[in-house]
Amino acid sequence: MRTRHAGATVLAALTALTLAACGGGDVGGGADDDTASDGGGGGGGDSITIGIKFDQPGLGYQDGDTYTGFDVDVATYVADKLGYSADQIDWVESPSAQRETMLQTGQADMIFATYSITDERKETVAFAGPYFVAGQDLLVAEDNTDITGPEALEGKNLCSVTGSTSAQRIKDEYSEGVELVERPGYAECVTALVAGQVDAVTTDDIILAGLAAQPSNKGKVKVVGAPFSTERYGVGLSQDNDMCEDVNSAIEEMIEDGSWEEAVTTNTDGTGYTPNSSENPPTVDACA
């Protein structure tokens, strides 16, 4: 990520030199200017690369060149407070299994991808936030009355996304005999559920609500509605970042000015989902 101020300083210096050499003639620019962004952003070529999910309706979802969802809205708000307009954001897909690597290798400056803050992950990446607190739940077939919680999954097939900790937690803490099935994305898990290939899908309640609300899934699946964990969504950053405090300030401002609540309502409308009021809006942690 290049800062806007640095780009502006370089541009000003080049302008002054050109004017001096050409006697005040027109200044050349565009693609030959050293400040042009590889990502094509505005503002002197500055851009910021933000990782999101591309397959989570209501959170992070790609439809052509359009990106929507709560994570997208929070990321856009934070980027604006950091000095980047919406057209200066380069969105990149951040699958669960690749998030740490993307931050460590500089493929993303920030990641807003239903990224739960855990001590294990803090060993390799840093977090700002949390900006939302979800709860792990189950998605089952609409006519399923047997699965009422994680304890009822003994001998059942449970689907989650590769790299997620959700399914393993159920096996470790609730149903040792559950059979774990991994798919690359939650949409694939729901497809398997509708086809009868798995008995349940697990992840955070807000993700499941978004999946259940999709036209192709309506009337076929339902959220059990008995969350059994606390998932604190953080903003993933590299460990050597210099943005954490500014990101936290932006999240707090979003909560205070009402934009956070508006984003939650807009992205869960019609799903029947209500965030846990005792946890949301969340209290932002101090940067380590």
Rank of each mutant, 00 (worst) to 15 (best):
D90C: 07
T105R: 08
Y61K: 10
E100S: 09
D87V: 13
Q62I: 05
F54C: 09
T101H: 03
A86F: 09
A75F: 05
A97L: 12
R99I: 11
Y61I: 10
F54G: 01
D71H: 05
F70A: 01
A75T: 04
T68S: 14
P95I: 02
R99D: 03
G60S: 08
T68K: 09
D80S: 15
K81F: 11
D55H: 07
G83V: 04
W91R: 10
F70K: 02
A86V: 04
Y67F: 14
G69C: 04
M102H: 09
G58D: 02
Q107G: 04
E93P: 15
Q104M: 12
V74D: 01
A86G: 07
S94G: 10
G106T: 09
Y84D: 07
T76Y: 12
K81R: 13
Y84S: 06
Y61N: 07
Q62E: 14
D87I: 12
G69F: 00
D90E: 12
D109T: 11
Y84W: 11
G64K: 05
K81I: 10
A75R: 03
A86I: 00
D63E: 11
E93Q: 13
L103S: 01
A108Y: 02
W91P: 03
Y77P: 00
Q107Y: 08
Q62L: 05
T68D: 12
G58T: 03
E93L: 14
Q98L: 13
V72W: 01
D109V: 04
A75K: 00
L59G: 00
P57A: 04
P57D: 05
D109P: 02
M102Y: 08
S96T: 10
L59H: 01
G58E: 00
M102R: 02
D63C: 09
T101I: 13
E100C: 04
Y84R: 06
D90L: 14
Y67V: 13
V72A: 10
D65Y: 11
D65C: 06
L82D: 10
R99L: 14
D65W: 14
M102T: 00
M102Q: 08
Y77N: 08
D73F: 02
T105I: 13
Q56K: 04
D73K: 00
A97K: 15
A108P: 06
G69H: 03
A108L: 07
Q56I: 12
T76F: 14
S94M: 13
G64S: 08
Y67W: 11
S96D: 03
S94R: 03
T101G: 09
Y67I: 08
Q107A: 12
F54H: 03
R99Q: 15
G69T: 04
P95S: 13
D55N: 10
D63A: 07
I89L: 12
Q104R: 01
G69M: 00
D63T: 12
T66H: 13
V74L: 11
F54W: 07
V72E: 00
S96G: 05
Q56G: 06
W91N: 04
Q88D: 14
Y61L: 10
Q98Y: 05
S94E: 08
K81D: 15
A108C: 14
M102S: 05
D71S: 06
G83I: 02
E100N: 05
P95G: 10
D90F: 03
Q62M: 08
Q88H: 05
